[in-house]
Design a binder for these strands. Structure first.
Length: 620
RNA sequence: CGCGGGGUGGAGCAGCCUGGUAGCUCGUUGGGCUCAUAACCCAAAGGUCGAAGGUUCAAAUCCUUCCCCCGCAACCA
């Protein structure tokens, strides 16, 4: 009895900004995005029972009820707050957090803001929270993540949580029921979805039936909000906490982080187009111990399709069905006498224990290990067929009983395999069982008899069809599925639960630089300068600190050319600088100008003057 | 001392917490088989487990130091 919820978190500043950028109102923006996710889940055969959007009216209403309840309990209070605000992260920082006017998290500039806000008494729950984490070992998983949160909680004081935003600053949110000038903080709204869904996406009383949730499956980037904010909110509401919060890792692509600017984003829709949903699902769950970061590559995809899917389960079905056609008249024969008792025992043992083993694995979310266990059975069957050699048995009529056993055993193994792979590859499972003639109806839940090993299978006509997974030949391996262009404004969700991709606005096309007049150019004062000394800026990757002479004047310039040039190589050289650039600080060091160098993002070479000229000479 | 991850046969990884003959997948080589999607089965080759030191009867595993790689962050004024 499972209720599988997924959905979208649609409020907040970033959504508002993205919508504004696209020139549409936030709701329209969200309405455009949501179907992309729904379609993708459909194509991937994700079996979610409901899809919640935090802009659903019933959700909003429920959030307001909760806010009112906490307000009535005096767990929400109003106070004025002054601090450094980071728009990107939608959060305030304290004075000591902020370095050089930059957000310590995203390093974007922060602005000083003072405003009245409502606060949730989160800090009051610090001890209770620590205690809860300690007494519930599996509450946060994997363990490394648990340690991370616990460490943070035990060394720092948990403050109260500002849960309101004045409408003057942010209007895209759920209005506070007790103060119409404010909307609630996006996380306060979003986290509530786990409970609100049970209020309106399922007939009541589903809340009693499904809460507390067995698991919140989230990305590792949103662990703190779930483990700390949400837990304290539930405590304040006197609701039980979920059994487990599991923070999964991220995918890299060919060893590199996926990013739109790199243009290496894997578009799941393209992967489905090219390889099929089942193969894609298989790879994602097979490649990495679930929870850890993993690396995705096209070649790994092809390798695993060929060796595990085509040569593995696909070929096992193919060879078994062909033999049943040829040696048994197209019907699965009843078992006869043992052919190879030793291997048959091994198969029986593996097959009998498989369902329970997989069950435990699903409970522990060890998907990769489950697939390994399934594939062990496949390997065992291949070995069995090879050694029993049905094609030889078929030549001697007196070996008939043994032949029947071999074919029957292989067929029963495939029957069990179809059930076993169903959670991973639903389409394939259905095809397999259909070709095998047992035709399971996977739209209903799997019964224990379907996964039972000791069943009588006799006289079942098979229906051999197309290969489950055709091999991918090497010519296709070079085909690029990873998008080449850095422009896909597609939804590329990584975390399937919340915070999917609310910030995906269209990337603006790079505009051709407009022409400027000579007057505008003359505003820029270029001068020659002689490098007196140069040294690396400690801890920087490519910054050099230069002392240069402009004749009468001496300047300090910080330049990002350290990847191309060694400091010693520059001393004594005459270079060109922008002399009237407003000074700026780089890593705390003041730079009073800018050196000219060729190159785009990477420095290729410094600009110099063809003839010897005095330092400080004007360049135009 | 910015934060984090990692260095194990040709490639990709597991093992490390809870020391005790180094394992998996792919690849390579040789053989077998012919039911099967040039597939499947068997066998072999191939590793000073980044380096050094320490603890121990015993170290890939624990401790110390160092080197290297990769993310993130800072950074191209």
């Amino acid at each position: 009895d499972v209720f599988f919820l997924t959905g979208l978190d649609e409020h907040g500043q970033k959504v508002q900004q993205a919508a504004a950028k696209a020139g549409i109102d936030p709701q329209t923006h969200c309405d455009k995005l949501a179907p992309q996710f729904k379609d993708l889940w459909n194509r991937l055969n994700i079996s979610n029972d409901a899809f919640l959007r935090t802009t659903d009216p019933q959700h909003k209403f429920f959030v307001q009820e909760i806010l009112q309840e906490l307000y009535d309990k005096q767990l929400i209070y109003q106070d004025s707050y002054t601090g450094w605000y980071c728009t990107f992260d939608e959060r305030f920082w304290t004075e000591k957090d902020v370095e050089n006017g930059l957000c310590p998290d995203c390093k974007r500039p922060v602005e000083k803001l003072s405003e009245h806000n409502y606060f949730f008494k989160m800090g009051a729950y610090q001890d209770r929270l620590i205690d809860y984490f300690k007494t519930h070992e599996n509450f946060i998983r994997p363990e490394s993540r648990r340690n991370e949160v616990l460490g943070f909680l035990q060394t720092q004081t948990l403050g109260d949580l500002s849960i309101s935003r004045p409408k003057s600053r942010l209007s895209w949110g759920i209005e506070l029921p007790f103060d119409k000038d404010y909307v609630t903080y996006v996380w306060f709204d979003a986290l509530v979805n786990y409970v609100s869904a049970l209020e309106y996406l399922r007939p009541t009383p589903s809340r009693d039936r499904y809460w507390p949730a067995s698991i919140h499956l989230i990305g590792k980037d949103i662990l703190t909000t779930h483990a700390v904010y949400w837990s304290t909110m539930l405590m304040a509401l006197n609701l039980p906490l979920p059994d487990m919060i599991f923070a999964h890792g991220w995918w890299t692509v060919d060893g590199e982080k996926m990013s739109k600017s790199r243009g290496n984003v894997v578009d799941p829709n393209k992967m489905i187009d090219e390889f099929g949903a089942d193969a894609f699902r298989y790879l994602l769950l097979r490649e990495v111990p679930f929870g850890q970061d993993g690396d995705f590559s096209q070649s790994a995809m092809v390798t695993s399709i060929n060796s595990d899917l085509a040569n593995g389960i696909g070929n096992l079905l193919s060879r078994t069905l062909t033999m049943i056609e040829r040696f048994a008249g197209g019907k699965i024969p009843a078992a006869g006498t043992p052919a190879l008792p030793e291997i048959e025992k091994k198969i029986a043992a593996a097959a009998t224990s498989l369902p329970d083993k997989l069950d435990r694995g699903f409970g522990a979310l060890t998907f990769r290990e489950n697939l390994q266990a399934i594939w062990e059975l496949i390997a065992l069957c291949d070995e069995y067929i090879d050694k029993a050699a049905p094609w030889k048995l078929a030549k001697n009529p007196e070996d008939g009983p043994q032949l029947k056993t071999v074919l029957n055993t292989a067929a029963r193994a495939l029957r069990l395999l179809s059930v076993s792979i169903y959670p991973f590859m639903p389409q394939t499972a259905a095809q397999l069982s259909q070709q095998l003639g047992v035709s399971f109806d996977f739209s209903r839940s799997i019964t224990s008899s379907q996964s039972q090993w000791d069943v009588t299978l006799a006289d079942i006509p098979i229906a051999k069809g197309a290969s489950l997974f055709p091999r991918i030949e090497s010519s296709r391996q070079g085909a690029k599925t990873v998008s080449e262009s850095p422009t896909p404004p597609q939804a590329t969700p990584v975390a399937p639960v919340l915070r999917t991709s609310t910030t995906l606005a269209a990337t603006p096309a790079p505009a051709e630089p407009a022409q400027i007049t000579i007057d505008e150019f003359m505003k820029i004062q270029l001068k020659t300068a002689k490098v007196l000394s140069a040294e690396r800026v400690p801890k920087s990757e490519k910054l050099l600190k230069l002392q240069v002479s402009l004749g009468a004047e001496q300047r300090q310039i910080v330049a990002g050319i350290g990847k191309k040039y060694e400091p010693e190589a520059l001393v004594g050289k005459t270079i060109v600088i922008v002399a009237n650039l407003k000074p700026a600080k780089l890593m705390g060091i003041e730079s009073q100008g800018m050196v000219l160098a060729a190159g785009d993002s990477e420095v290729r070479g410094l600009a110099t003057i063809l003839e010897e000229v005095d330092p400080g000479t004007k360049v135009k």
